[in-house]
Design a protein around this nucleic acid. Structure first.
Lengths: 206, 206
DNA sequence: GCCAACCTAACGACCGGTCGGTTGTTTAGC
DNA sequence: GCTAAACAACCGACCGGTCGTTAGGTTGGC
C-alpha cells in the first residue's frame, strides 16, 4: 500500500466487484482510501480510466500467463489441458479483476471497449486454434469451434462469480474438476451410444 | 402492447439488458413508453419493483418449464438430457430476462434478493439430484456435485451473454452442442487414459 | 523554488421519487 | 336515463440528494 495510485486501484477493484461499476461512486472510492474525491483526479483522468486500467492490466496478464503455460506443453491434449488449467486458475486467483473485466464492459467508452475486446479476441483465438487442432487430429469430436470455445471460456468466467476464496475446495481441486469435465466434453467417441433417436421434448415448446 | 404495465416491463427489460439496471433511469424507461416518469409510479411502487417483477416471472417460468420437460423423460440419462435441453433453450429463447435475472441481483433489496435466491436454489437442487442419481447409478464419473452443477448451469447462463437471436446457429443447434458437451463431460470412463502423471504447470504460478 | 499530493468548495446535471391536479371512463343511486 | 361520485391513468412541476468533475488554494519534501 505504498503509493496511493495502487491503493486506489485496489479499493476500486473491491468496490466494483462488490457493488458494480455504476453503483460505485467516486466519493465512495475516495472514502475507502482515506482521501477526498477531488484528489483522485490527481492520479486518474476520471472514473472510467480506473475501470479501464483494471481491465487492461487483467487481460494483459491473462494473456501473458496463458502464453507462459503453453510453452511448457507439448501435443494437442497437453496443450489444451495446460490452457484450461491456466484459464481456470487465473480466473479463480484473480477473481475480482476477471469478474469486473467480463461484466463491466458497458462502463467503457467506444474506443476503450475496442481495446479490451481486441485483447479478448486474441485470447479466444488461442483456444479456438487448439480446438481446431484437436478436431483435425481426431482427438476431439468434430463440432462448432466458436460455440465450443465460448462454452469453455465462459464456464470459467462464470466460475469467478460463485468461487469463495476460503470455501470448501481449493483452486487446485476446482482446476482439476474443470479440466477433466472440459476435456471429456470435447473428446471424440462415446456420445452416440445412449442418445435418443429424437429429442424427447421440443427445445421451443411455446 | 395493449396495457401500459406490459409495455413498461418490455421496455425496462430491453434497457436493463442493454445498459444495465443502475445505468438505466426511470425517466429513460418512461421515454421509451411515451409517458412521463411520474406515471410509472401508478403501475409500480418503484424502480426495484420493475426489476424484481422481471426476475421473479422469469425464474418462475424457468422452473415451470423444467418441471414440464422432466415429466416426459424416463431414466437418469434421458432426464439429465431433458433438463439440460430445457435449461439451454430457455436461456437462449428468453435471453434478455435470464441475463438480467443472473446479473442484476445487486439491484435487489435484502428481502427481494432472498426470494429470488430461493427460487434459484430450488432450480439448482433439481440438477444436483440428477447428477447424484447419475453417479450412484454408475453413469456419471463420481465427483463434486455442487461444482459440477454450477459448471453446467453457469455454462448456459453465460450463453445468454453472447447469443445473437439471428446469428449463425439456431437455438436447436446450440442446444444439441451443449447437451452433448455436458453429457460427455459428466460420463464415466475414459478420462484416465491420456492424463499426465503430474500437472505440467502449477495452477498457482505466482 | 518547485512540484507532487492533497485539500475545500463549488459546479451543472441528473437521480429516484412525490405532489396536486386534470383527464376520460366506469360505476352506483335514484 | 340521468347524474354524481369514484376511479385508473396520466401530467407538469418540483423535491432533496448525489453524481462526476473542475477550480483554485495549501502543504511538505527534494
Amino acid at each position: 500500500m505504498a503509493h496511493m495510485k495502487e491503493t486506489l486501484i485496489s479499493v476500486a477493484t473491491d468496490l466494483f466487484y462488490e457493488k458494480g461499476y455504476f453503483a460505485t461512486s467516486i466519493s465512495r472510492i475516495a472514502q475507502g482510501c482515506g482521501i477526498q474525491k477531488a484528489s483522485i483526479y490527481h492520479h486518474f483522468a476520471g472514473k472510467e480510466e480506473l475501470l479501464f486500467g483494471i481491465m487492461e492490466t487483467t487481460m494483459a496478464e491473462l494473456l501473458k500467463e496463458l502464453d507462459k503455460n503453453l510453452k511448457a506443453a507439448v501435443g494437442v491434449e497437453q496443450r489444451m489441458r495446460a490452457a484450461v488449467r491456466s484459464h481456470v486458475a487465473f480466473h479463480l486467483r484473480r477473481q475480482k479483476e476477471t469478474f469486473i473485466a467480463s461484466s463491466e464492459l458497458r462502463g467503457l467508452s467506444e474506443s476503450n471497449l475496442a481495446r479490451i475486446v481486441a485483447l479478448r479476441d486474441q485470447y479466444e483465438a488461442v483456444f479456438q486454434n487448439l480446438i481446431a487442432a484437436g478436431m483435425e487430429g481426431g482427438l476431439f469430436e468434430p463440432g462448432d469451434i466458436k460455440i465450443l470455445s465460448y462454452a469453455i471460456l465462459t464456464l470459467c468466467t462464470a466460475g469467478a462469480t460463485w468461487y469463495k476464496p476460503n470455501g470448501r475446495l481449493s483452486i487446485a481441486a476446482i482446476v482439476e474438476i474443470y479440466e477433466n469435465f472440459i476435456l471429456n466434453g470435447l473428446r471424440k467417441g462415446q456420445l452416440t451410444g445412449n442418445r435418443p433417436a429424437a429429442l424427447a421434448c421440443d427445445p421451443w415448446p411455446i
